[in-house]
Design a protein around this nucleic acid. Structure first.
Lengths: 211, 211
DNA sequence: AGGATTCCTTGACGGCCGTCCAAGAGCGTC
DNA sequence: GACGCTCTTGGACGGCCGTCAAGGAATCCT
């Protein structure tokens, strides 16, 4: 905490107070924003709507965030943290190849069903990053962490069957993510087969990646 | 052409005149709209901007289209026509399995490089359809036609190697589309490996789909 | 040519947007 | 209890949005 009491311009306000309530409110508002974004999509979500859903007035957002891009960027970063935390424990324990295949399939199908709207938001934001440069770096970082997550799975499976990966990390990620994206599409469209097909798809694709 | 000369409400205006200039202008405006959309993305494109890029005034859009959704929907449909027309000739001629793999890889890499912005728009609109119900049906139809296209490729390849497909059409589409989507992402991000990786990826993935 | 019809422009409307700001509320400290 | 600082409110702003209507321009038909 500074002992001087000079008047602070808004940007400084954001830099200060790292540990206390300020940062906490930012997280809280970003959480609310993520919820609204996941329901309405990037293109249809306004700051006023985010504020309304958060229970605060619309003015408060500019007290905690410089502008809309700052808020969305912060949201994306927070979403990333949520992502890797959730997915990092997926592979952890499995001593049989078949069990790992089943575990990974179940984990992916589980999060797809449970966090469908958040995954929808992820694909939305990833798409937006192709048009809006501001998000690109953060989105790419998340994408990398997802690729690494898939790659860890491939390596774990390879280890269990006594083989080594025969493809690049990006190939593994691309094909598995393709399966996941399509399963999400069909799941949200009401297809009841989507989850099972995802499980089967992962179970089928993973073994082709090692040898 | 009707011989009566009753005053027509806007909706009727659209239903009439199927063959003549009316439909042609619609196509022309939709083409301009697709161009603008592919450059700016769905979330950032306004009717005024579309009109400006088309060389007409902003009012004309409501003479040829009921509202914005009508325009975008028409654009999506027109995009679909463009798509299937372009992709339908891809597999056509190939008597050797290796030649088919190379041909498909080159074709996909070629259209990815040449029509990158249009493909970016496709993924954008496909994502939007998960939030905006109005587009969902048309987008699903395009998706189906793409899946069938990939499936024809798989069947052609299976025929050439004297085998049959061992996966579902949706599995084939999901994995190949995953490769394509990631290649597009990396290509637009400036990666020079993206196109070659797409070629290699397709060449690697296709053989795993038959047996 | 001239009237009817089609096509297109222009300007306006209400509404929502992101942003900013003045003022008040809450609250810990002296 | 008064002060100072942090936090929050709610209104105002300019601007862009989609939509629409009135009227001019172009075209067609006889």
């Amino acid at each position: 905490m500074t002992s001087t009491s000079e008047p602070l311009a808004p940007p400084d306000r954001i830099a200060r107070r790292q540990v206390d309530k300020f940062a906490e409110r930012r997280r809280q508002l970003a959480d609310a924003a993520l919820l609204t974004l996941s329901e309405r999509g990037y293109a249809r979500t306004s700051l006023r709507e985010i504020a309304k859903d958060s229970g605060f007035s619309h003015g408060v957002l500019h007290y905690y965030f410089r502008d809309k891009v700052d808020l969305i960027t912060y949201c994306v970063r927070q979403y990333k943290a949520h992502c890797v935390e959730r997915y990092d424990g997926i592979v952890a324990t499995a001593t049989e190849p078949a069990a790992l295949l089943a575990g990974v399939g179940d984990a992916l199908a589980g999060t797809l069903a449970q966090d469908a709207l958040m995954h929808r938001l992820w694909y939305d934001l990833r798409g937006q990053s192709l048009f809006e440069e501001s998000f690109r770096a953060d989105v790419a970082e998340i994408d990398d962490s997802l690729e690494r997550m898939i790659w860890r799975t491939v390596e774990a499976y390879a280890g269990l069957v006594g083989a080594t990966p025969t493809c690049s990390p990006s190939f593994a990620y691309a094909t598995v993510d393709g399966l996941f994206a399509q399963a999400l599409l069909r799941h949200l469209a009401g297809s009841s087969d989507a989850l099972d097909d995802l499980r089967d798809g992962v179970r089928r694709q993973l073994p082709t990646l090692v040898g």
